[in-house]
Each structure stands twice: as structure tokens, then as C-alpha cells.
Simulated assay, not measured.
Amino acid sequence: MSGSSVSAHVREIAVAHSPDSDDAFMFYGLATNKVRVPGLKFNHTLTDIETLNRKALDGFYDVTAISFHAYPYLQDKYALMPSGGSVGEGYGPMIISTKQLTPEEACKTKIAVPGTMTTAYLALKLFSPDVETEVVPFDQIIPAVLAGKYEAGLIIHEGQLTYSRSGLHKVLDMGKWWRDLTGLPLPLGGNAIKRTLGPDLMQSVCVALRDSIQYALDNRAEALEYAMQFARDLDVQSADKFVGMYVNERTLDYGPDGRDAVSKLLDMGYEKGIIPNRAHPDWVELAAAAK
């Protein structure tokens, strides 16, 4: 059989995720072909989460990382994959400041946020519905606060571990606030898959992602070495800690309370008028043989 006829039978799957150490760790198996699926080729695009949220509105990628806050806006095009979640177990995005402020004081100022479709933004608005915000690229929030452009900023990703190096103060950890409020973990982001792929292909891709996560967890040292290229200012020990926060057994399977937390978060957003339409979380359920 000729090479051209072989390639004609390969289905390319466009995958997009954030250029962060935890996402890189999660997708290590697929990105390096340690995990393969006959007949499928995975093409990876890395870009910031707010851009991914916006592109998902148009169904741009077959598989995409999204903020859970974005899901109600794209649920007609995408279902939620059962693996790949970034879930805060009593920790998550933080409000930080150069001053020691109370959360109430911080929310009387204009807060720099990483995007209005991020889950961090949704949690902030649930905490303080009238807070004034301004969108700043996520990796520029700490510099902007240090420069005095904002009294407070809402940080995500590795900034949760590095903010204190700059002399900044933690005002409020949204994950701890959410846990105290609901008793649930804070589901920040997940992976979504286009419905137009059809049930069989959706199953195959969901199994491939789960296997990629499992491969990384089983081969932690090599997966972490790969992820370090995306670890923005983190040493190996800190990167390992950050990856452990957001890629773990919960990433393989949200669990009943994890799925409940997604519904609770989005229902609250709708009921508070932050999200205009009610979410109907729709999870791809893996066939028994794939589990």
C-alpha cells in the first residue's frame, strides 16, 4: 500500500491546550507519541486559556482545554471529556496585592483579571458581584500590580506559587473560599470535545487523553522533564508541586463530587445572573470495555 493511501486513512485531531506545565504534563503521552491510537494523528496547538475559550465559541478545535465558566456558551458544540480536569482541592486562583488588604477592601478597587470567561473571574463575581475588573493577560497581572497599575490582581497558573517572591500578599484564595462555602473542590478547567466527531471517535479520543494522563502519572520524571519547558520561572521542585496540584487522580476521573461541583458552580453563576443561560453539563461516558 502506498504512503499516500495510508495517510488518507489517518484522521487528524486538532488538540489545543494552555502552554502551562500542568497541561503539558497531562498531554505528554499524546504529544510525544508515547500514547498512540491507530488511525489517529493528534496535532497540538498551545495558547492561553482565554483565547481557547473564545475559539471554542466557534468550534475551532476538535479537543480543547476550556474554563468551566465558558462551557454554557459552547455546550451546543462540545461535550465534556471525563478526564483532564484541573480541580482545586481547597486552593485555586488568588487575589493578590502589594498591600495587606481584606477581601472586601480589595473588591472596592479595580482588580486585574485574566479574562471574563475564566473560572477565576466567575468565582470572583460570585464572591463580589459588583467588583470592578479589567482584563490583563494572565502573565502580566503580577507585573501590573507591582507597577502600581492596579491595587489587586486575580492570578492563575504558576503565579499561585510565585507571587510571594515578589513581596505580594495573598488577599483571598478562591479555592479555599469555595470549599468553605460549598464543601466542594473548585473545578477550574477541563477538556471539551466536539460533538460533530460522533460517538465512536469521541470515545476513542477520550480514552486516548485518559491514557496520556495515566502515562504521565506512571512516568512522572520524564513527563515532568518535558513539562519544565512550560514551567515559567519555576524550579523543578516547584513545578513538581504545581503539577501535583492539578494533575492527579482527580484528573483521571472527576468523581461524583467533582462533577457535582461543576454543576453547582455553573448553576450559581446562572442564578446570580453572571451566566445568561443555564448550563447542562454533558459528559462523555466511557464504555465499560474502555475503563
Rank of each mutant, 00 (worst) to 15 (best):
Leu217Thr: 09
Leu186Asp: 04
Thr98Phe: 01
Glu271Asn: 12
Gly244Leu: 01
Ser5Val: 14
Tyr226Val: 08
Asn248Met: 02
Met228Ile: 05
Ala239Asp: 09
Gly92Pro: 00
Gly159Asp: 12
Gly153Ala: 09
Ser212Ile: 10
Leu101Cys: 08
Val10His: 01
Asn53Thr: 08
Ala287Ser: 13
Asp257Gly: 01
Phe242Thr: 01
Thr182Cys: 10
Pro129Val: 08
Arg278Gly: 07
Gln203Gly: 10
Ala216Gly: 15
Gly153Ser: 10
Leu184Cys: 02
Arg165Ser: 02
Tyr28Pro: 04
Gln214Asn: 07
Tyr91Val: 12
Ser263Phe: 08
His169Lys: 15
Ser97Cys: 01
Leu217Glu: 10
His9Ser: 13
Ser7Leu: 14
Asp282Gly: 00
Thr182Phe: 08
Gly189Ala: 14
Arg36Lys: 15
Asp180Ala: 07
Ala56Lys: 09
Leu168Met: 15
Gly39Glu: 14
Gln100Ser: 13
His69Asp: 05
Leu286Cys: 09
Asp62Trp: 03
Lys108Ile: 02
Gly39Asp: 15
Ala120Arg: 05
Val10Ser: 00
Leu126Asn: 06
Leu161Asp: 08
Thr47Pro: 06
Ile275Gln: 09
Tyr71Lys: 05
Gln229Asp: 12
Trp283Gln: 09
Pro114Arg: 04
Gly153Lys: 09
Phe242Gly: 00
Lys108Asn: 11
Glu285Tyr: 06
Glu104Leu: 14
Ser263Leu: 11
Tyr121Met: 02
Asp235Asn: 15
Arg259Glu: 03
Ser212Asn: 11
Asn53Lys: 05
Ser83His: 01
Ala123Val: 11
Thr133Ile: 09
Phe138Arg: 04
Arg11Met: 14
Arg210Leu: 06
Ile213Gln: 07
Glu158Pro: 00
Tyr91Lys: 13
Ile13Lys: 10
Leu101Ser: 11
Arg250His: 02
Ser83Gln: 00
Asp235Tyr: 11
Arg232Ser: 07
Lys194Leu: 15
Ala70Leu: 05
Val171Ser: 10
Ala70Met: 11
